[in-house]
Design a protein around this nucleic acid. Structure first.
Length: 360
DNA sequence: CGACGTGTAAC
DNA sequence: CCTTTTACACGTCG
């Protein structure tokens, strides 16, 4: 049967949730921010609703820039409240799982659904399922979303991006090449700034041009694997199944109140942020073998240091290793001050071996 | 081959 | 002025 995948993307999710629970800001421009705590307005924009986007405010920009664009206008700035967004997200994912053969949540506001069986491989039926899902989310949560439907995850994702907000786009297999052809390469999911620049150097600007380019040149510039990946994207080829993945790592990162090269001061920050990491490690019931410290210096240069140890589920152990790694970093990088630090645990051991750990 | 570090990408 | 979290590919080293 023809595989059919549906992608759901909630419309300016965080901002929409804030509008829902604060009637007084409904209809206004809303900007949800990650405040770093350095100065009163340091940090970045997480989500701007469409009223705010009309002013040029976009996710990723600094709060400072956003406030400059907001000027004297009536714009509401709010801090993120992930706990609340996750709670609503959970309810939406439960709703989605009732409408699909399989669900893969890719972020707090996005999911892929395999609807092959329920649509019987028919795109007209799939479209009706898309409409039903949009209606149910609106009835239950008063939220809109954009839906894309295609014969694989990549095409479904590209389709959901086509019409926003509150969109529904169905792309049949025979329409894929025409659908992607004129898109600039950077619009293809998985192709970012660096790859775009490299492709532009070769005179390649659209998906169609990428497909028509010389394969030997692509191989030479990008290597075989990445060249093939690029060609697959340009032609809408993707065989990835819709399935929930196990988490591979858990990390937390934070911004220091001031730049510092003092081990004790920086480690204090690691201890603070490790509380959140510990909660997550315990919730997921994982045991890890690798601990990493992530450093971001005043020049915004990122480096990691890691160490693999005996299997443990104890974040205190991770902290002890983290302190060593941090001291090592400062020892080998005298005079480098940090702006941000992070800690990560990874190299999880599968559940069978975890049981062995629990037996002790 | 496992461990480690960096780069790229998306949210 | 410049946030957060995760994934994965690739090069290198021993």
């Amino acid at each position: 049967m023809q595989r059919i995948v549906l992608h759901v993307d909630m419309d300016s999710f965080f901002a929409a949730l804030e509008e829902l629970r604060r009637p007084e800001i409904r209809g206004k421009a809303v900007v949800v921010c990650v405040y770093s705590g350095r100065t009163s307005d340091s940090g970045a924009v997480s989500t701007a609703n469409y009223r705010a986007r009309e002013l040029g405010i976009k996710s990723g920009m600094t709060i400072y820039s956003a406030k400059r664009l907001a000027m004297d206008k009536d714009v509401v700035f709010l801090p993120v409240d992930m706990e609340h967004y996750r709670a609503v997200s959970l309810r939406i994912m439960e709703l989605l799982s009732r409408e699909a053969d399989a669900v893969e949540q890719v972020s707090v506001d996005e999911a892929y659904l395999d609807i092959t069986r329920r649509s019987k491989g028919d795109f007209l039926t799939a479209g009706k399922i898309g409409i039903k899902i949009k209606r149910k989310i609106k009835e239950q949560e008063s939220l809109t979303c954009s839906v894309g439907i295609g014969h694989n995850k990549f095409v479904a994702k590209m389709a959901s991006k086509r019409k926003k907000p509150d969109g529904l786009t169905v792309v049949k297999p025979e329409e894929v090449l025409a659908f992607l052809g004129d898109l600039p390469v950077a619009k293809l999911h998985g192709i970012g700034k660096k790859t775009e620049e490299a492709l532009n150097e070769l005179g390649i600007r659209t998906a169609k041009e990428l497909l028509g380019s010389r394969v030997d040149v692509l191989f030479g510039v990008f290597g075989e694997n990445k060249a093939k990946m690029l060609l697959d994207k340009a032609s809408g080829i993707d065989d990835e199944p819709v399935e929930q993945h196990e988490m591979q790592q858990i990390s937390r990162i934070g911004t220091l109140k001031h730049d510092s090269d003092d081990v004790d001061f920086v480690f204090q920050k690691i201890k603070e942020i490790s509380v959140g990491m510990k909660e997550n490690v315990e919730k997921r019931k994982v045991a890890f073998r690798t601990v990493s410290v992530i450093t971001i210096d005043t020049q915004l240069e990122t480096r990691t240091r890691s160490e693999t140890i005996a299997l443990t589920d104890d974040v205190e152990v991770a902290l002890a290793v983290g302190r060593r790694l941090l001291a090592g970093f400062f020892g080998e990088n005298p005079g480098i001050a940090l702006r941000r630090v992070g800690i990560r645990v990874s190299n999880f051991v599968d559940k069978k071996k975890q049981r062995t750990l629990g037996d002790f």
